[in-house]
Design a protein around this nucleic acid. Structure first.
Lengths: 330, 330
DNA sequence: TTAATTTATGAAACCGCTTACATTTTGACG
DNA sequence: CGTCAAAATGTAAGCGGTTTCATAAATTAA
């Protein structure tokens, strides 16, 4: 038998295909004895239902996609990888299968959605509004992670950037720092902007003005960050603490400090953001604002599932709390 | 029109469904004018072919899966994430869609394969032989990455561990080091073993015996590695160079050195393995054996495609060369 | 024991596309 | 202009399930 079908099982077990079908998808609807007969026949034939045919008949595929809208490194960015792990765990536990693709291929994903293979999409990174509306017009459920789009009706899951910055800054303040500089990131509009604005805000609350010499923009690249940090540290009134917009940038700051012979945390305190795996590898270990990315991924999946289940009153934005992990660098 | 089908297009354009179908999947088979009529009708109706129905009729789904057989961190492990990116790029360019899941869910993946939704699987990490045979018995194409299984007929893609170790060791030797120790990994049987054995071999080739005090096993965890390294460095005849089985372990060694007040690379040279992103973040930057994981992923996809296309003479093992990236730590 | 009701099973249509085979069109050529 | 091979199109039978509705069997009530 090349590929046993439901008909083969039906014949061998002596019941109709309808009953075989039920035995597999709604066992409680078929009587014990009948069910056993069906399972036995299936066993003998090594039958297992063809999901494609099932999808066709049921008009649902049980597949969702995680699309990372980002140039270059996508999964290599720990942030997105961790979110992915969160999604993955929850998805499989909810009997959804997970497709994955990156920005480069987003047209492909739209195509996939159009062709009704995907029920929902989780968009990571800077998803263009156009993409969202296109997906929604295909009746695909959409959830946004780590990004916000004005004027669109869809759930999004974000981390509490503002609170994270507040935690970092107040900690530094509590340690007596007053000249706190920030190395802000550039490439990820939403997150970078949120962190930067929060920094200005929190500083202002404490009556500290941040002038041009207190902030530098740089790309998330160690060497570029190191250079920017070096410039900050070369100022006459150099900062005693630096907040990096993410851990890579903070690592750059540490490099710069080392090269200038500054001791950490005595001469300079450095705080990062994201609490990625590099934090503990650095010496001294990097104090960083922890973001529970895995949890964010799980929440995305929960929201998506709610959407797919047609639930009402799904929260528009879900904010995941941050936590400052104090380590040696500050 | 709720969901336009090929019939709607057929009716509106005045041609048969067969022709509509051809216009979409084999355009060269339908005359210019007819084709245009079909496309116009499709446009009007906002029709796009239903991939599920197509999969059903064609008996192929154009989907493959990447299954990471590993406890805990899967995509969070840069190694696997980079492979994934490689697969992803190539897959979408070959019109395959990529499903992803991890060890925890491998039963699920087998189920998915059984239900004929997946044409091929790329297995990363320590895939159990049982899993491979089960997949193969379902007529699913299988490719192994970064692992080898004896006695099974399937292509695998691996990096040249031995050569990588040789590059690292000969470099250290060329810098005058003789007491070279290794911090070997534990958790990833194939890779860890390969690196360890290669180390013994290369050392032996140079007439250097490695005794118990020259090797320590440890888990890929910075602190554990730091502790193991500390023990090595506390020996009366302490090593002047340490080769870490991977970058995390090497980072641990650097930590230990720092804590003991040793200078790098003067007092201790450290070399890592994998050339992950942390290398450049450390100060001094970590010399490491580069593995082109992305390329490995691409090669996996190439092999898988060859398998799916029924090609003959597909290489059993594909070895990806390594390259020593010399940086400040050695 | 029989009627009424509930539960289990079966027959058959349907999901939306592909494709083998039959038929019609087209265009080259004598 | 008729013939014939090649190219284009159409007809209809799948692909392998699910599900509605009708029917049969089991259970409960009377």
């Amino acid at each position: 038998m090349e590929n046993p079908t439901i008909y083969d099982v039906s014949r061998l077990s002596g019941v109709s295909t309808a009953t075989v079908s039920r035995a597999f998808s709604n066992p409680e609807q078929v009587r014990e004895g009948t069910r056993r007969k069906v399972y036995e026949a299936a066993e003998v034939l090594r039958y297992s239902p063809n999901a494609i045919a099932r999808a066709m008949a049921r008009q649902r595929t049980d597949k969702i996609a995680y699309l990372i809208c980002k140039k270059d490194a996508t999964l290599l960015d720990e942030f997105y990888a961790a979110i992915c792990e969160g999604i993955m765990g929850k998805a499989y536990r909810s009997d959804y299968q997970l497709l994955i693709s990156n920005a480069e291929d987003w047209r492909v994903t739209v195509g996939t959605a159009q062709s009704k293979q995907i029920e929902g999409v989780i968009l990571g990174g800077n998803a263009p509004a156009e993409l969202v509306t296109e997906l929604q017009s295909q009746k695909v459920a959409v959830v946004l992670v780590n990004h916000r789009l004005a004027g669109l009706e869809l759930p999004c899951v974000i981390s509490d950037e503002r609170e994270g910055v507040r935690q970092a800054v107040t900690y530094l303040l509590s340690r007596g720092h007053r000249r706190i500089a920030m190395l802000a990131g550039r490439l990820q509009p939403y997150v970078a902007g949120a962190r930067y604005n929060a920094f200005l805000e929190v500083m202002a609350e404490h009556g500290l003005r941040v002038d041009a010499s207190g902030v530098k923009m740089c790309n998330p690249d160690v060497e570029q960050a190191a250079q920017a940090a070096a410039e900050l540290l070369a100022l006459p009134d150099r900062p005693t603490a630096i907040l990096g917009a993410n851990d890579v940038i903070a690592a750059g700051a540490i490099k710069a400090a080392r090269r200038m012979g500054l001791r950490l945390p005595e001469d300079l305190a450095v705080v990062g953001f994201d609490d990625s795996s590099i934090c503990t590898m650095l010496e001294p270990a990097l104090t960083s604002v922890h973001i529970d990315c895995r949890r964010m991924g799980e929440l995305c999946m929960e929201r998506l599932k709610a959407l797919l289940d047609g639930e009402e009153d799904i929260p528009r934005v879900t904010v995941v709390p941050t936590e400052l992990k104090v380590r040696g660098s500050a």
